[in-house]
Design a binder for these strands. Structure first.
Length: 591
RNA sequence: GGGGUGGUAGCUCAGUUGGUUAGAGCGUCUGCCUGUCACGCAGAAGGUCGCGAGUUCGAGUCUCGUCCAUCCCGCCA
């Protein structure tokens, strides 16, 4: 039997036509003398009626069985129309039934409401059933539309998609890599590419000028809701571009993407925020701009304070920051304790606060504050009845990070109380710029690249590379949406001498190591490397946002669990001694 | 590597201070039913309380260990 229509197609205009449909049994309603079957395919649902000799056969169907039917399109009685279905005005009176496969009873409900509540390990074990749910089907479709939109956009801008190898060489300074043993070269390994970074720069040297790729990347780091061991990056690089060119290019892509997938017009150009300002005002380098609750700095106010905890932090180079969670004075003991725990997990000794209730500042620390200090707080934080003010005193970056996190949790608590609305479809895009090129790695006792070692310094800061590396800003940019880092990129170093200097003099990588790891790149740069820059962003995260979900597992057809297992196919698995021998590998099990 | 939450019927969950035969809804099965669309009605089956120790006269409940899922920290140039 061949299908003449899909299951979202039939309307009153098809009345009287003989049609055939193929699909899955979505539900059966057996009334004895008459049986209704909702037949589902990837397009929708059509009601099929069995009241003829086929009734007996239809009674033996089970949900999720695959059948084909043919019959005549009939109009439903007026009061039997199902307004929830596009095909709800009609039904098919079956005259033929072909049963392809009777399904076993599914291990969990396949409707959206029921399926959402099911434990994820069960959904992953039976992923092929999970993907039958309308929501998951929609997510796959959104992902397809998104990748198509992106490809169309870059094609329209005359970018070409070039594939780069997944099997690359090991470069241990970045993320931990997946190693692939070489059979032909005993004892040697490839690494699965963490990103096409070096290849795309080589492509610029090759004169491609405008490159993009929807590339699979691999990182052997611990998994999260927004991190999988293999994930997809949209990778872009162009020659003869400035930061402004990249901003405009990428904003154009996002504008088209949001239009194509959601039909939403997003505002461009995006807001821009320097890293310093992002940290100072929001306590994080990827601020959620959908609400205020900004941090304020009181380091100077408390430098000579009678409250020794704040004063000593201020005089020893740290920062005293405060945040007014407006209207949150009704926090419960438990909620305060939880916030305190959050602060402690980020290295705070405690979480000082002032609760403004009944015209009074209720706080264990306020008795140490002078009148001038109180006045400064009131004025700059706009403290009023019903407010809750939190403090952090620590080294600058830590103080920011602590209150940045408290800001997010306070916002959630305000949402819970109906005092704040944060809409998931309120798209607040943002460029974060002027990151420091280097940061000092205490553990290694050396500078490390904040982004990656190929990022070019801001020209006017380049002179500081020798004298004060941490003051040098990089030509790096991150694009942030609603508190999530979508991606980032930079203008690259294209002069071999400068690149070598960064590797050897600033990052202190020994010359022979630089040569063995990056020699080919430096060599390529000596043959006429154009100035170039680009950006890369996580497709999975972007699609998750477009689908309104927080877990990228919901937009990946076959994701792995947090322990890196595929519960359906059951990987990883041990391999045979023969395989290992062929690869010159011996395994050593942990104790 | 560390912290939080969870694991009881096929699914989602309840289970009081440690105490009789571990419950509910949905699903499944059987029967009835010609207008349902979350069909309805009547009935039934279904349990290694994640696993392993321990405490106790007695453990789903308390303790320790362990496994799995998930969220977070570290990590992710």
């Amino acid at each position: 039997m061949h299908r003449s229509h899909h299951c979202a197609q039939l309307t009153k205009s098809d009345l009287g036509a003989t049609v055939s449909l193929l699909g899955w049994v979505d539900s059966i309603r057996d009334h004895g003398g008459i049986i209704f079957v909702d037949l589902r395919d990837r397009k929708g649902i059509t009601q099929v009626k069995f009241d003829s000799s086929l009734r007996e056969q239809a009674a033996h169907l089970k949900d999720e069985s695959v059948i084909g039917i043919s019959g005549k399109v009939e109009v439903r009685p007026a009061d039997m129309v199902n307004k929830n279905l596009p095909t709800g005005e009609v039904e098919v009176d079956a005259t033929e039934l072909e049963v392809h496969n009777i399904s076993d009873t599914p291990p969990f409900p396949l409707d959206d409401a029921g399926g959402d509540k099911v434990n994820e390990d069960l959904r992953l074990t039976y992923r092929y059933l999970d993907l039958r749910r309308p929501k998951m089907r929609k997510n796959l479709l959104v992902r397809h539309k998104a990748t198509k939109s992106i490809r169309d956009y870059f094609d329209g801008q005359e970018f070409i998609e070039v594939e780069t190898p997944a099997l690359f060489k090991s470069t241990p300074e970045g993320a931990r890599e997946y190693l692939v043993p070489s059979r032909i070269h005993p004892g040697q390994f490839y690494a699965l590419s963490q990103s096409p970074q070096q290849f795309k720069q080589i492509l610029m040297v090759a004169g491609v000028e405008k490159y993009f790729q929807i590339a699979r990347c691999f990182r052997d780091e611990d998994l999260r809701a927004d991190r999988q061991m293999e994930f997809t990056q949209v990778d872009v690089e162009a020659s003869f571009v400035t930061r402004e060119d990249i901003y405009a290019l990428f904003e154009g892509m996002l504008k088209k993407l949001w239009q194509d997938v959601l039909g939403t017009d997003i505002q461009t150009p995006f807001l821009r925020l320097a890293f310093q300002d992002a940290m100072n005002r929001f306590g994080v380098d990827k601020p959620d701009m959908r609400f205020g609750l900004e941090l304020a700095d009181f380091t100077e106010t408390f430098r000579t304070s009678g409250f020794k905890v704040f004063a000593s932090t201020a005089t020893s180079g740290g920062a005293v920051k405060a945040l007014n969670a407006k209207g949150l004075a009704d926090l419960t003991q438990g909620e305060i304790a939880k916030l305190e725990e959050t602060a402690k997990s980020l290295g705070a000794k405690g979480l000082a606060f002032i609760k403004v209730e009944g015209g009074e500042w209720k706080s264990p620390i306020v008795k140490f504050f002078s009148a001038a200090e109180k006045a400064a707080l009131t004025e700059r934080l706009g403290i009023a009845e019903g407010d809750m003010v939190f403090f952090a005193a620590a080294p600058w970056e830590k103080a920011c990070a602590i209150l940045g996190r408290i800001r997010l949790e306070a916002a959630q608590l305000l949402v819970k109380r109906g005092k704040l609305t944060i809409r998931p479809d309120d798209w607040k895009f943002l460029w974060v710029i002027d990151f420091p090129l280097m940061s000092y790695d205490e553990e290694r006792g050396a500078y490390a690249a904040t982004h990656h070692p190929f990022t070019a310094p801001v020209p006017e800061d380049a002179a500081l590379l020798n004298s004060d590396p941490k003051k040098v800003r990089g030509q790096h940019y991150d694009v942030v949406l609603n508190g999530m880092e979508l991606g980032g990129g930079s203008i690259r170093i294209h002069q071999p001498a400068l690149q070598k200097k960064v590797f050897e003099d600033v990052l202190k990588i020994p010359a022979d190591v630089v040569e063995s790891r990056f020699g080919y790149l430096l060599k390529a740069f000596t043959y006429g490397a154009p100035p170039h820059g680009g950006i890369a962003f996580g497709l999975d995260r972007m699609v998750a946002l477009l689908c309104g979900t927080t877990s990228i597992r919901d937009v990946i057809a076959f994701p792995k669990t947090q322990k890196g297992q595929d519960l359906m196919a059951q990987s990883p698995t041990p391999v045979t001694p023969k395989q290992l021998k062929e690869l010159h590998i011996a395994t050593v099990m942990p104790e």
